[in-house]
Design a protein around this nucleic acid. Sequence first.
DNA 1: ATTTGTGAACGTTTTCACAGCA
DNA 2: TGCTGTGAAAACGTTCACAAAT
Lengths: 278, 278
Amino acid sequence: MATGRTHRPATRSRGIPEATVARLPLYLRALTALSERSVPTVSSEELATAAGVNSAKLRKDFSYLGSYGTRGVGYDVEYLVYQISRELGLTQDWPVVIVGIGNLGAALANYGGFASRGFRVAALIDADPAMAGKPVAGMPVQHTDELEKIITDNGVSIGVIATPAGAAQQVCERLVAAGVTSILNFAPTVLTVPDGVDVRKVDLSIELQILAFHEQRKAGEGAAAEAASAAERGSAVGAAEVDAADADADADVDAPEADSAAANRKGPDGDVPAVMPA
Amino acid sequence: MATGRTHRPATRSRGIPEATVARLPLYLRALTALSERSVPTVSSEELATAAGVNSAKLRKDFSYLGSYGTRGVGYDVEYLVYQISRELGLTQDWPVVIVGIGNLGAALANYGGFASRGFRVAALIDADPAMAGKPVAGMPVQHTDELEKIITDNGVSIGVIATPAGAAQQVCERLVAAGVTSILNFAPTVLTVPDGVDVRKVDLSIELQILAFHEQRKAGEGAAAEAASAAERGSAVGAAEVDAADADADADVDAPEADSAAANRKGPDGDVPAVMPA
DNA sequence: ATTTGTGAACGTTTTCACAGCA
DNA sequence: TGCTGTGAAAACGTTCACAAAT
């Protein structure tokens, strides 16, 4: 009981599980597409396929919202679009600020899907004085000095951080102090925030590393899981450029090792006795 | 038993839970920072704080990798960096292609963290002939016609899709047919892939919607959950611009409704008798 | 004296399978 | 007959709490 409180104690919604909330936008997107094609009703099976989940999960998810379907028929598309939008809070308009107008920030500012559903870019903010006044996505970039005023004047409660990692925590603190209570963080760093502030993180590098993990497992799948050359699968592969990688990957040694008590370290269960580098 | 197989049946790793895999990059990042500061050892408590998790979880996670710590002391930083890198497959080099060099694709190409850990941008690909040959991030953009050849020649197994939603599925299919088995999808659409191909999705719009959900709950927290004006919390808020939003949010009506059997729909438990729009 | 590693308890999420309703 | 809504079961993930190790 050292620290006591967990990082996000109040994640439990007014009934709706977090996992369900995370899928609602998916359903909404699928439903919107159906709505545009003027499809009047949809079954859980069809909608689930469109959203990339299975139908039992979808029905369970919807059951947390209420009984919005009709047995034997399915769901009314327009009605569900409205109910989910409402549940997600998209029937109101959310002004958003983007801080850090580099490559990524500019890309986000230009991203169309932003404005589509209740979100409105209220301001673009950057620390570089040379950026100030420059138009990005048809909007003048404002200097960080204005941050607090912008947040307050526009009633912004959602902030997007697209700064370098080093600046992120400080920007975060200023946003929070000015009244922002939800942050979407693109900087590759862990943000520390007070209770009551939500942070979601988008991290390219982490996603790639997770993919690499699975990719590696695929490669060592049929083989004896050793001498992992960059074996590709599916179709023919030349691999006529990855030799440097091979030199790295082949070796089961070459681990950095520091000092003292390096004895009796063991890997998982029945594997090789573990990598014991010099 | 209609469809039968789940979407990703073989997610279960050789022991390591998916949730743990998703955190390993976080630990790795924290450890790398410690390594750069020449910190020799670290306790689970310290490392957990740096990574933004709790120490019990971290220890459990590490226990799936093996016994790499020393009781009474902690973990050797360099050694752990190596072990996690190895587990994630980062001791080898992963050539990656980025398809779709718009704002976002260009931002990704310029993203430094890309090259840092085992990933190397092997090619930038775009469907626009006008883009072909143009340098982005010091690299000439190649035309989509070359896609298959690029994948094959470079032994690419990881592809990043940053195209518009409409093009994503088709690009995905070409990537997979050419030998790519892991895809990072930035397009706001559900990709359908054959078994054995991993897809991870990064979706700005979904993240914002999840934040909006929680933001909405915060607003209606103290109040009677009705007449939800855009009440902000924490510090003073002018809200001198969000009036349009208020008009939308106040109303508990205004739901679109289609046709027939709209009777006896009920919301969750003891709520208002449900929104019954005209 | 500390701190890891891990069974056991607990909580959450997914899946199953079918009753209930149109 | 067809499809939703939901208890019950299973799978998965997190936290607790302490024995084992140094």
